[in-house]
C-alpha cells in the first residue's frame, strides 16, 4: 500500500528536498528547529503552516481536475467563507455555529458549481468563472466593504494556535489530505472519479452515476476552500473580502500540476498535489529569506516552476535519451578525424 504511493510521489519529494537544500545553501538557518513553550518553531515549520491554504485547496482541486474539470472559484469561496465566519463570530453566534455557517457556505458554493457543471452542462472553466467573479462581490456584501476584525480566541486558534507541538493549520491540511485519500482509496470512489474523468459517457454507460459524483466532487472542493478560508481569516483575525484568497486558485492548480496530475483528468494523487503545495510555499519562503528586491519575486518563482515542470516532464526523458545518443555519436564522429589530422 505505502510503496506504490512513495514511488508515485518520489519526483515531488526529490524536488522538495532539492529546494530545501538550495535554500539552506543560501540561508543556512533554514533548517533550524527549536522547541519554544512546547511548540516547534523554525522556518520549516512556518513554511508548512503557510502551505495550509494552498494545500487544502489542492486536495479539492485534485479531485475536480481528475474529473477533467477545473475550479476557478475557490479563491472567491475563501473570501465568502472567511467573511461569513467573521461576521457570525462578530454577531455573537459563538464559534461552533460560525464554523458551521462558513463550512455550509463553502459546500453550498461547491454545490452551485457542481449543478452548473453536471446538470446544466456548462463547461467547468466557464461555470466556476461565474462564482470566481461574483463571489468576491458576495463576500464584500457580507463585510460591507471593510475588513471585519474579531477577537474570539477560539477562532484565532485555528490560524495561529498550536496542537501537539505543531501549528493547527498544519494538522488541518495534513488530516484533510490523509482522510480524503483514505476515503477515496479504501473505497472504489477514487477509481470512479478517475473513470468519469477519462470518459464520462463510457463510465455513465457502465453504471457510474457521473452526475452525482461530479456534484459531490465540486462540493468537496467547496468544503476544502471553506477550510482554507477559515485558516486565512483566523490567521489575520479579520476577513478581508478584497484580498483573502486572491489568485490562490491559480496556486492550487499549479500545485496539482507540480504534483504530476494531468489537467486532462484521470489518474490522480492527492499526496503528490499536497507536496506540490509545499514546493510552492518553500519557493515563496526561500525568496523571502534570500532578501532579493521584490521586483524579482515573480521572475524567480516562474523560473523555478519552469525548471521543476521541465525536469518532471515525462516526454523529457525521451528527449534526453535522444539528445544523449545524438551527442555521443557526434563526439565519436568528432573524435575520429581529430586523431588523424593534427592541429595546425
Amino acid at each position: 500500500m505505502i510503496f506504490p504511493v512513495l514511488r508515485r510521489v518520489a519526483p515531488q519529494l526529490i524536488t522538495l528536498f532539492a529546494l530545501i537544500v538550495l535554500i539552506t545553501l543560501i540561508f543556512p538557518s533554514f533548517l533550524n528547529l527549536s522547541l519554544v513553550d512546547g511548540r516547534l518553531v523554525g522556518p520549516l515549520v512556518d513554511a508548512a503552516k503557510r502551505s495550509a491554504p494552498v494545500a487544502l485547496l489542492a486536495v479539492g482541486m485534485t479531485l475536480v481536475i481528475a474529473t477533467k474539470g477545473i475550479d476557478l472559484s475557490v479563491g472567491a469561496i475563501i473570501a465568502i467563507c472567511g467573511a461569513s465566519a467573521a461576521w457570525a463570530v462578530g454577531a455573537g453566534y459563538g464559534l461552533g455555529p460560525a464554523l458551521l455557517i462558513a463550512l455550509s457556505a463553502g459546500i453550498a458554493c461547491g454545490l452551485w458549481n457542481g449543478v452548473l457543471v453536471a446538470i446544466v452542462g456548462i463547461q467547468p472553466f466557464v461555470a466556476t468563472l461565474i462564482l470566481m467573479t461574483a463571489g468576491r462581490g458576495i463576500a464584500q456584501l457580507i463585510t460591507e466593504g471593510r475588513i471585519l476584525t474579531f477577537t474570539d480566541p477560539g477562532f484565532a486558534w485555528i490560524g495561529s494556535g498550536t496542537l501537539l507541538g505543531l501549528p493547527v493549520p498544519v494538522w488541518l491540511w495534513f488530516s484533510t489530505a490523509v482522510l480524503m485519500a483514505l476515503i477515496l482509496r479504501r473505497t472504489a470512489l477514487g477509481m470512479l472519479i478517475e473513470a468519469v474523468g477519462i470518459n464520462r459517457r463510457a463510465s455513465a454507460l457502465s453504471g457510474v452515476n457521473a452526475r452525482v459524483l461530479l456534484i459531490a466532487v465540486y462540493a468537496v472542493a467547496g468544503f476544502c476552500a471553506a477550510l482554507a478560508g477559515l485558516v486565512v481569516t483566523a490567521d489575520i483575525r479579520g476577513a478581508d473580502a478584497n484580498n483573502a484568497g486572491l489568485w490562490l486558485e491559480l496556486d492550487a492548480i499549479l500545485a496539482v500540476v507540480i504534483g504530476g496530475n494531468s489537467l486532462l483528468g484521470g489518474r490522480f494523487s492527492i499526496a503528490a498535489s499536497v507536496i506540490g503545495a509545499l514546493i510552492i510555499q518553500t519557493i515563496n519562503a526561500g525568496i523571502l529569506l534570500a532578501g532579493f528586491p521584490p521586483e524579482y519575486n515573480l521572475v524567480i518563482k516562474a523560473a523555478l516552476v519552469v525548471v521543476i515542470l521541465v525536469v518532471q516532464s515525462p516526454s523529457l526523458g525521451g528527449h534526453f535519451a535522444f539528445l544523449r545518443t545524438a551527442l555521443l555519436s557526434r563526439r565519436e564522429a568528432r573524435h575520429a578525424p581529430q586523431t588523424e589530422e593534427p592541429k595546425p
Binding site: 538557518s29 512556518d46 503557510r50 486565512v232 490567521d235 484580498n243 523571502l288 532578501g291
Partner: peptide, 18 residues
Amino acid sequence: GDFTRSGGKTVMEGFLQA
C-alpha cells in the same frame, strides 16, 4: 506585502526569522 494584512504578516514572519 501587497498592501494587505496577510501579506504584511507573512513577510514580517520571514523578516523575523532572517
